[in-house]
């Protein structure tokens, strides 16, 4: 059996702040295989974006990866020095951000930026690099790429910029792409176009994709597997159908119930009472217990992450649809 494209083992990223240590990512274990899409779902402050940044070694101080492994094709990225990491980043692993202007330099033309990216990792001529940049733009559906690549980022619309950012991510046909809410700021019709590109990419190149989002509806249509995060931990993980149709963790149940859906028009939405706890002051036991309708005395102990069936795990001692642990 070959190593998965990416495997996180007990990843911990902490931020030392004046108010104390924020355990933004606190023991996250995940895996993504070749050609697979993993939807990493959570609300603001759940640690989903920091998980993505940790994979690429892009956590800024005071944040620091303090423990665990980031195994990319079997190699631990958390132990890699900056030089070796730079060789992988943008080459074998790419990231797409929510705001494409985080990727694009506003004062350089698109072609300059793209050619630079190609030359950084491939020993090719400038002309060859330009050719590759043009092909990548064409691939993400930009009409007349030859002409458009001479423009500056501000001359593009939001959706077009995001496409350019995706084209840059694709330049070296990476084995892994981490996409952090890439369509959240876009209109629905443009989001549809971007999602179509993402699907095509995974199918054609076998790229593994981690799609970070707060929107369950997007991953429902896109992902193979879903991991739900709450307060820095994965609380539930499994295939899309299983997680959405038979959720185990009460938080996942609440989250799904909160989504307005055509099945329950006009009916009151199932709301989760309360709000997300402060990351500075998490309870000792289950972080969701204070909002949980199934909470009991045992919840004051930290719940273990239990595999109920192969590939189907949750961090809860009173899960819905209980079955014997595998």
């Amino acid at each position: 059996m070959t190593a998965p494209t990416l495997e996180l083992r007990d990843l911990r990223t902490h931020f030392a702040t004046r108010g104390g240590v924020v355990k933004a990512v606190d023991g996250v274990s995940l895996r993504v295989d070749r050609g697979q899409v993993l939807g990493l779902v959570g609300e603001s402050g759940s640690g989903k974006s920091v998980t993505g940044f940790s994979i690429l070694g892009l956590v800024d101080p005071p944040g620091q990866v303090v423990g665990g492994q980031v195994l990319f094709q079997g190699q631990d990225l958390a132990r890699l020095d900056e030089e070796a990491m730079r060789h992988l980043r943008g080459n074998r692993i790419a990231m797409i951000f929510q705001d494409p202007m985080m990727t694009l330099n506003p004062v350089l033309r698109i072609d300059t930026q793209m050619i630079e990216t190609v030359l950084a990792h491939a020993p090719v001529s400038r002309e060859e690099a330009r050719q590759r940049a043009r092909d990548a733009l064409g691939q993400v559906g930009i009409a007349a790429p030859e002409e458009r690549m001479r423009a500056y980022p501000h001359q593009f619309s939001g959706g077009m910029r995001q496409r350019v950012a995706i084209a840059i991510a694709l330049l070296h046909k990476p084995d892994l792409i981490v996409a952090d809410e890439p369509t959240t700021a876009l209109d629905v019709t443009i989001q549809g176009q971007i999602l179509a590109e993402a699907q095509k990419l995974c199918a054609e190149h076998g790229t593994a994709l981690i799609w970070i989002t707060h929107d369950l509806s997007v991953v429902a249509g896109l992902a193979d597997r879903i991991a739900v995060m709450y307060a820095g931990r994965v609380v539930e993980e499994g295939p899309v159908e299983a997680v959405l149709d038979a959720p185990l963790h009460p938080y996942t149940v609440g989250l799904i119930g909160s989504v307005p859906s055509r099945n329950r028009r006009g009916a009151a939405l199932n709301q989760i009472p309360g709000m997300t706890p402060s990351m500075l002051n998490l309870p000792a036991g289950c972080a969701f217990a204070a909002r949980c309708p199934r909470a009991a005395s045992g919840c004051s102990e930290p719940p273990p992450f239990v595999e109920f069936r192969p590939g189907r795990s949750a961090r809860c001692i009173h899960p819905h649809a209980e079955g014997p642990p595998a």
Binding site: V188, T189, L195, S217, V218, A220, G221, L244, S261
Partner: peptide, 8 residues
């Protein structure tokens, strides 16, 4: 184009 939780 609306993503729906019902659509897989």
């Amino acid at each position: 184009e609306v993503p729906r939780i019902e659509n897989r």
